[in-house]
Design a protein around this nucleic acid. Structure first.
Lengths: 151, 151
DNA sequence: TTCGGTGCAAAAGATTTGCATATGT
DNA sequence: ACATATGCAAATCTTTTGCACCGAA
């Protein structure tokens, strides 16, 4: 079994909440984990369709929300306003290429520290944050012979 | 005239692009600047309606996009996925209170510097970014006797 | 057997578009 | 006059909901 941890997490969640283990939930979880993240509901629906054509649009959406409840997935929205889901793992931020759409992940303890200082200064308690850098990735820049903006 | 700078910026943009100065654009700009930012299309439409009832929904949306083109406004989306517009001014990031919805602004050169380092390390050129902290503001915490999450 | 789950179709909310009409330039 | 702008209604797009039927426990 490939994604043992998440599958067990889901089973545990369902159990604990009197919900049912269904074929759809299995299939959606498997496809979601397999694809590896940053998918929209639509993306996932299309993926699953291929191997399980009678699955409903609605079920995919509902199941994604379920995964968020079960803390298997996180919901994010980048600049297009569409909800995307990714596997919940260690906290990180994102770099999005404006040309090819690829999404990179990063983390920076310097930034985290600075965030806490900002929040403290305003009497604010941070629960979560969102931090996205948009630009051009190396590969795309090379393709287009696209220099840094200031050059 | 209260918002001279933006009004001139708009006039310049319209001129330069062969577009027209209309009563609606005036009214919308005035209302937008007056309100002071972080408004949705709906918000602004409702505001303007009071003093100019026959204005169309569509016109407000189109005009807001125009302001973005003219670099008078910026479009943002916080976690609810709805587009909000704010007056374009010095770069800054946001702190959003999850309880009362108030939006604070901040900037941190430490964070900006760290962003550049992250991007350099990945061969990425940043064009823009988005950085939002979500939490509870001081006022709301006092009202609810809500301590820091770790306490 | 009993709830919860699923799938369809329809609803909803935000935003955009088509089009005839109105209006700056 | 002519091109752009406006306002309405209708279309889109994404996501949610109502409801009859299905299926896991």
């Amino acid at each position: 079994m490939t994604h043992d941890i998440e599958q067990k997490a889901l089973a545990r969640y369902l159990e604990a909440h009197g919900l049912k283990q269904t074929r759809q939930r299995e299939v959606i979880l498997e496809a979601f984990l397999e694809a590896g993240g940053h998918l929209t509901g639509e993306d996932l629906y299309q993926l699953i369709r291929e191997e399980y054509p009678k699955i409903g649009y609605t079920t995919v959406y509902r199941t994604l929300k379920l995964f968020v409840e079960a803390e298997i997935a996180e919901e994010r929205r980048f600049d297009d306003g569409v909800a995307r889901y990714e596997i919940e793992h260690k906290h990180h931020d994102h770099l999005v290429c404006l040309l090819c759409g690829k999404i990179f992940e990063f983390e920076s303890s310097v930034i985290e520290q600075a965030q806490r200082e900002v929040a403290d200064g305003l009497g604010f308690v941070i629960h979560r944050h969102r931090h996205e850098l948009y630009g051009h990735c190396e590969e795309c820049r090379q393709k287009k012979d696209d220099p840094a903006p200031g050059d």
